[in-house]
Design a protein around this nucleic acid. Structure first.
Lengths: 150, 150
DNA sequence: TATTGTTATACTCTATAACTATA
DNA sequence: TATAGTTATAGAGTATAACAATA
C-alpha cells in the first residue's frame, strides 16, 4: 500500500500535487481504517458523528453540506449510525420535513474513543513532520478546499 | 463539492490532517475529471500511462507496484487502455509469464494532451499557492507516503 | 414551486481468494 | 514452490434522476 520506489520512474506524475494527494490520502485512509478496526467506524461515519457532536440538533441536509456528501448518500450513512445506536433522530419541530440529530451516550463514547484513536494514528503516521509542518500542511489543504469550484 | 462553511462547526475534525487530505483530494479529483472530460482518462489511467511513458518495457506487476495498485485490479485498467488503443502489450522476451508495455502513438498523444490539461487544471486550482508553497505541499505529502506502512 | 429526505441505480476504486501458466 | 497475470466477487464511495411529504 505504501509508495514503492524500486527504481521505477514516476516521470511528470511526480510533479503533480493531485497525484501525491491521491496517494497520501489513500495511505492515510488505510491507516485510519486499521486504527479504527473493530469499531465499525469509517472516515465518513466519523465525519458525520463529529458534525453532530459539534452541532447538536443539525439536520441531515446540513450535515451533508458540511461534509460534501450528497443528500441521497446521506440516507445510508444515517441509517448505519442509527442501527449502531450512535445517534438519535427526531423530526424537526420547525420543519416537519427535516430530521434533526443528537448523539446518544454510546455515540458520544464512540466519538471520544475515535478521537483518541485518530490522534494516535496521526501522531504515528505524521511523526516525521514537526507540528509547524503539520499546521502548514493543514493550512495549504484548507486553501485548496476553499479554492475549489462549488 | 466544495467546502461548505455555512456556519457549521467542524469541531475536532478541523484539526485532523486526514480529514483535510480526504476533502481536498476529492475536490482535486473532481476537478481533474472535469479537466479530462471527453478523453476517457481518469486519475488511475493517467497514472498507468505515465508510468509506461517513463519506463517503456515495464511489466504489469511493476506498474502496479509503482502506483500501489493490486495485481487483480491492474487487469481491468490495462484492458481499458488496450481497448482505447493507448498501449501495446507484448510477452516479455525474458519471462513468458509477463507482459511488457509501450505507448502507441495515440497513447503518447493522450499523455501529452493529458499533461497539458493537468497543468492547466492544477494551475487553476492551486492559483492561490505560490510555487514555493506548492513545492512545500508536495514535499510534505511525499514524506507521508514514505512514512506510511508497507 | 422549492426543499427535505428517500429509493433506485450505476460506476469507480479497492480488497481477497482461487485459478493458470510459466519459472 | 514461487511468481505473473487472471477471474470472480464483494464492499465502499460517489453520482444522477425521479418520487413523497411538507414548506
Amino acid at each position: 500500500m505504501a509508495a514503492e520506489d524500486d527504481g521505477i520512474a514516476l516521470g511528470p506524475l511526480d510533479t503533480f500535487v493531485g497525484y501525491h494527494m491521491r496517494r497520501s490520502s489513500a495511505l492515510m485512509a488505510a491507516d485510519f481504517n486499521a486504527a479504527m478496526a473493530g469499531t465499525g467506524i469509517r472516515q465518513v461515519l466519523f465525519g458525520v458523528l463529529s458534525i453532530i457532536a459539534a452541532n447538536p440538533g443539525i439536520n441531515q441536509g446540513r450535515i451533508g453540506a458540511a461534509l460534501g456528501i450528497q443528500r441521497a448518500n446521506m440516507v445510508t450513512l444515517i441509517n448505519e449510525l442509527m442501527d449502531a445506536g450512535f445517534i438519535l433522530r427526531t423530526v424537526s419541530p420547525e420543519d416537519r420535513r427535516a430530521f434533526v440529530f443528537q448523539l446518544t451516550d454510546l455515540g458520544s463514547a464512540a466519538v471520544a474513543d475515535g478521537l483518541a484513536r485518530i490522534r494516535r494514528h496521526e501522531d504515528r503516521l505524521l511523526a516525521g513532520l514537526s507540528s509547524a509542518e503539520r499546521e502548514t500542511l493543514i493550512t495549504l489543504l484548507k486553501r485548496i478546499e476553499a479554492a475549489a469550484p462549488a
